[in-house]
Simulated scan of single mutants.
Amino acid sequence: MRLPGTRYQEHGWEEVRKLLGAGSLVALRACDLDAVLQPSRHAALLDDYTDALAPVLHAAGRAARMPGNGYGDSVGALAMALLCELPARPAFWLAFATGLAGEHAKQGPFWRAAAGDALLRKKVNDMYATLRDQVDADNYQAATGQPCSANRIYTYRMLDMAWRAIEQVFAGWPGTAPQVAAILGRPVDALPIELRQLTSAARCRPEWVIRWSESLERFGGSPGPLHTRSKRFASLRNQPEQIGALLAEIGDYEALSANGDGAAWLHDAQAASDWLEDLDRIGADSARAAGAGEVCPAPRYEAVTAALAALAAEALPVRQAVCLKLLGPSDDSYPDDWRTGPGGGLPTLEQLAALAGVSVPTLRKRRNAAIDRLVGMVPAGQGE
């Protein structure tokens, strides 16, 4: 789901949550969690936590560079930004620390036991889940000038989930015909036109959402979000106009913001990040090698060197034919005595065959065999 100003409501949130959860376990082990028992130490504990978690997120590598949303933000960047929000919004950390203290009162210092990691991670997940909604709510207000709360963001997300669930029910036709009839509020004997009309949140009718929620207890075994005992969404059951307005806003903004989803730079982002990581690795290896008085070879250096040595064993016309095929007739790497062909470049394949004293098909066959050997000796790099 996308809304103006939001960054944490799309598919990548699950990866952001996992990264923050796993990293937090590492960071919290480096902290004195007994400090949660003393409210006066909560602020200092937050400083220790952020200092410990930041390098863990930076070191996450490729996992952190996964796309986190449709705007080009990576999982790592989103996680780091949310971590930086904690000191600016200490109430979320104080609630987290108070929650840990409450669990300590029930079962002692559970975080010291290996089995306590699950509860600790759940508390971390809850903290960041509420924080992300508040951050997105504030950014929504800044982007639109309209009031918004974390609860409203939660409502948007529920409705986005609802229309997509309805879409899945419609897609299951005819196997889901009874539930389709319940959602549409009429008998369906043939393929309903509504199944083709539902193409976005904006095309989802509010009465469908209400009937879908009502149908879940019958078809899913548990009440839908509008029909539970919780008061969070109870009022929406009687406000189809509000449901329709919220769905229209979700659909309209997703259509507006989707024009860059296929941009080439998004597809190149991962390859560029991998290249930078390789560059960083080579730089670190070079620094270590320099300290040992050695030279750090580039990736696949040994394989390339061996391939060039094998090519040097070929006759000169064959080597030139290989270069003609792979690099073209003109290249700055060619020595001057090779540049005897048209325009000061390599000789043509016919001229090279004459120099070698063989026919053009024979030279072409030898050239292709040499290229095949080169390709076999130099393995492709990752991502190539």
Rank of each mutant, 00 (worst) to 15 (best):
L355E: 15
S24W: 10
S200V: 10
S330H: 15
G343W: 08
S24N: 13
S74W: 00
V26Y: 10
G70P: 04
S215K: 08
E85I: 08
E167C: 06
P147C: 02
I166C: 03
A95Q: 10
V135F: 06
V124K: 01
R229I: 03
P240L: 05
S24I: 12
A59F: 04
A202T: 13
A234G: 08
D336A: 15
F96H: 06
M161S: 14
Q320P: 04
W338C: 11
L256P: 03
R367V: 05
L236A: 06
Q9T: 08
A35Q: 09
P39I: 12
N125M: 05
P223Q: 13
Y334N: 09
A22H: 14
R132Y: 06
I166M: 01
L191R: 15
R364W: 02
I243T: 05
G102Q: 13
L308T: 07
Q168P: 01
L311R: 09
A315M: 08
A201T: 03
E277A: 14
S213F: 06
S273F: 01
T50N: 07
E217T: 01
G221E: 09
P225K: 12
A380K: 08
T130P: 00
G344K: 09
G293R: 07
A118W: 03
K123R: 14
D336M: 11
A181D: 11
A306S: 12
D133W: 02
D117K: 04
G116Y: 00
A165H: 14
A298D: 12
V188P: 02
A312C: 10
D160R: 04
R29N: 15
P299E: 11
G220Y: 07
M1C: 02
A287L: 15
L45W: 09
V169F: 02
A315I: 04
A264F: 06
D332W: 08
L57Q: 01
Y154G: 00
N125P: 02
A292I: 09
P39V: 11
W93F: 15
V36A: 03
R112D: 07
V180C: 13
V188M: 12
S213K: 09
G99C: 07
R319E: 04
G70R: 03
D136M: 01
A309F: 11
A369C: 04
R132Q: 02
A22G: 13
E167I: 02
